[in-house]
């Protein structure tokens, strides 16, 4: 990728990442997050990771951001009326972030100079699939288990439990009901 194109997407990514942090309205933060992710995926495509770049755009912008949007809509979040003080926390937070940034910069500016020319088929789907389904097969299958557990856990956490009547199925569930009743009392 040429330096000019890189600079364009880099500035876009940094500015929109600052937008994620600094916007008052959660929906505006989410739009800035979309811009950040699209800039990063363009940078990945420029690095030769074409399949991963498009996958990032599709999975993040198409799926995860929409889940965020649904949650903001469900919670009916309004514009943040400004956050209360805690100046000390903000000061120490800013100091820690500055220290982290300086440390990472000091490490990374001494990185290898230029990328070698990409070998043929670098970052293509078949090269990626070759690795995922051969060298990383166990990790890939563990990933599917992780997603299954995450989906079941998300549904179990987010559903509305009938807290008024005791639940009949299983000891854990009735313990949960006990907890809810004790909390309400």
């Amino acid at each position: 990728m040429e330096v000019g194109v890189f600079a364009f997407f880099a500035v876009l990514a940094v500015v929109s990442a600052l937008g994620v942090v600094l916007q008052r309205s959660p929906v505006h933060s989410l739009l800035a997050l979309v811009a950040t992710l699209l800039a990063i995926s363009a940078l990945l495509i420029g690095l030769g990771a074409v399949a991963i770049g498009f996958l990032l755009a599709i999975v993040y912008v198409g799926a995860i951001v929409v889940v965020f949007l649904f949650v903001i809509w469900l919670l009916n979040l309004q514009r943040d009326p400004g956050e209360p003080g805690h100046l000390a926390a903000k000061f120490f937070g800013a100091f820690a972030v500055a220290a982290l940034t300086a440390e990472l910069f000091a490490f990374f500016v001494r990185a290898p100079v230029g990328p070698p020319p990409a070998p043929a088929g670098y970052g293509s789907v078949d090269r990626l699939a070759d690795l995922i389904f051969r060298d990383y097969l166990v990790a890939f299958e563990a990933t599917s288990l992780l997603l299954l557990v995450a989906v079941v856990g998300a549904v179990a956490v987010a559903r509305r439990w009938p807290a008024d009547q005791p639940r009949r199925s299983g000891a854990g569930a009735s313990a949960h009901g006990e907890l809810r009743r004790a909390e309400r009392a």
Binding site: F6, V14, L18, T36, I40, L47, L100, T101, F108
Partner: peptide, 20 residues
């Protein structure tokens, strides 16, 4: 070609913004 260290510095900056 853009040097790799540019990408690494950009990644560090984005990570720091996220931490902030």
């Amino acid at each position: 070609m853009t040097p790799v260290s540019y990408y690494l510095v950009l990644g560090a900056a984005l990570f720091a913004i996220g931490v902030a």
